[in-house]
């Protein structure tokens, strides 16, 4: 049976980058993302110290990180958590979308700049940013995302769908501004 410490060291080597990646997409401050990533591993270690067994390391680490990010949002003095969250009402959004001129859009987005993509994700409001990052950057399956955010898979799917719509609206309005 593998030494507990070695398990954690391995987990660090394997997952540190992707956890940091996730944190840096969710927070605006790189230093803070670093700190939270470190904090995440330290807390995970403490948890293990208490004799708790960690069945699957990666989801556990993501969960721990998520809680830290939530605490971080709470600490941000200039917003309340509510004001940072978008109302989850994709229905209204649908009515407001301009008629999709797919040809122009496709051409315009064809060479989508990577940096702009990252910037767009960062600007997406919560809770959409979180699920889109988990799905398309961290490659978590919907089932795992559901466990992580403590919602049903249905809710997660809807949220992803609305998130994509929101994202598309954001990109299209950007597109128009640049034209």
């Amino acid at each position: 049976m593998k030494d507990r410490e070695q398990i954690f060291r391995d987990a660090f080597e394997r997952h540190a980058d992707e956890l940091f990646r996730h944190a840096s997409l969710r927070l605006s401050d790189r230093d803070r993302a670093l700190e939270l990533t470190q904090e995440c591993f330290l807390k995970a270690w403490q948890y293990a110290l208490r004799g708790e067994e960690v069945r699957e390391m990666r989801p556990f680490l993501f969960k721990t990180l998520r809680n830290l990010i939530i605490d971080e949002y709470r600490k941000a003095k200039s917003f309340s958590l509510d004001s940072m969250l978008e109302d989850d009402d994709g229905g209204v959004l649908e009515a407001n979308l301009p008629r999709d001129d797919t040809n122009t859009l496709e051409k315009a987005c064809d060479r989508f700049d990577g940096a702009r993509a990252v910037s767009a994700i960062r600007r997406l409001p919560e809770p959409y940013r979180e699920v889109l990052a988990l799905r398309y950057v961290d490659d978590l399956p919907i089932r795992e995302i559901a466990g992580l955010v403590e919602e049903s898979e249905n809710v997660v799917s809807v949220r992803l769908h609305r998130g994509l719509k929101k994202l598309r609206a954001m990109l299209e309005s950007e597109q128009e501004q640049r034209a």
């Binding site: 660090f12 591993f41 990252v118 398309y136």
Partner: peptide, 30 residues
């Protein structure tokens, strides 16, 4: 458009990682 977006996003985000000294510091802290 969204496929292109996400493939670009994926490529770009892969570049986000810990710098070697940052990693070392974290390792030592752990």
């Amino acid at each position: 458009t969204m496929n292109s977006f996400f493939s670009q996003l994926k490529k770009e985000t892969q570049k986000i990682r810990l710098a070697a000294p940052e990693r070392e510091r974290m390792r030592l802290a752990l």
